[in-house]
Design a protein around this nucleic acid. Sequence first.
DNA 1: TTGTCTGCAAAACATTTGCATACTG
DNA 2: CAGTATGCAAATGTTTTGCAGACAA
Lengths: 144, 144
Amino acid sequence: MKQDIDNSRYRAQQVLVSAGIKPSFQRLMILSFIMNAHIHPSAEEIFQNLKPEIPTLSRTTVYNTLNLLVEKGVLLPLTISEHETRYDPNTGSNHSHFFCHHCERIFDIQEVPACVAGQELEGHLVENVRLYLTGVCRECRSKE
Amino acid sequence: MKQDIDNSRYRAQQVLVSAGIKPSFQRLMILSFIMNAHIHPSAEEIFQNLKPEIPTLSRTTVYNTLNLLVEKGVLLPLTISEHETRYDPNTGSNHSHFFCHHCERIFDIQEVPACVAGQELEGHLVENVRLYLTGVCRECRSKE
DNA sequence: TTGTCTGCAAAACATTTGCATACTG
DNA sequence: CAGTATGCAAATGTTTTGCAGACAA
């Protein structure tokens, strides 16, 4: 157990350092939680889970850290839940997400499926498909 | 001009009635604005645009109406902008959305492209691709 | 008249900002 | 010591809720 914790913190430390982020205790704990919990947590979930272990932790630090990690490309922010941003530590692979509106969990879907609502996918009932592209539009590009 | 307004209100009225929604004046104006402006507006944009014409309009009514229209399947809520929900009156066709993070406009993309970040699409520079599926997960289904 | 729609005011909720204190190199 | 990180308190922005009056069938 102790070994596992050490390992996951070590992996988180590696990620922070190679992204050029100073691996403070709070940042280490926050990223380590996100990487190991596999629940695509919200800021509030992170805060609630770490609060018992780090009683001085504040929401501000959680938000500061999340914004920094997104900026540095360590985390992907997901707006699939309509109420809060959730965070995915898997920034490398080209995968999709499935949001269950009952339990509010987010599942990784490994292949990007050419699928249609009403279908089944890995046992989940897909009611809704939304493809979101972001970037810079034609007109804004020409103004740069 | 007058004719155009009458036509668009008439179309909005048809949509409301066939969705089983009582076509009150405020609802008619809100849906008609969304259907004709083609800008995937936010609640605030709707409010600001209609306020001069309907000085008594309140944000509450805008939110009530939007929630009702989403519930009845008349509008799609888009969470592509991280700060606010935006609304799409085109619920039928299976299209995607492009969000420009400069001008904050949302463009309809007619085909669902098998595209990758860094690519160009209809002149827009795509920096980010996110496929969001929602529905009921395997475990929640088995509990029903 | 009965129920629904509207809109004000207040609340709720996620997130950000200002600022002072505490670390860390 | 200098610069950055942390965290409290207050502010912000979006959305919801409670409730009372207005409207429509």
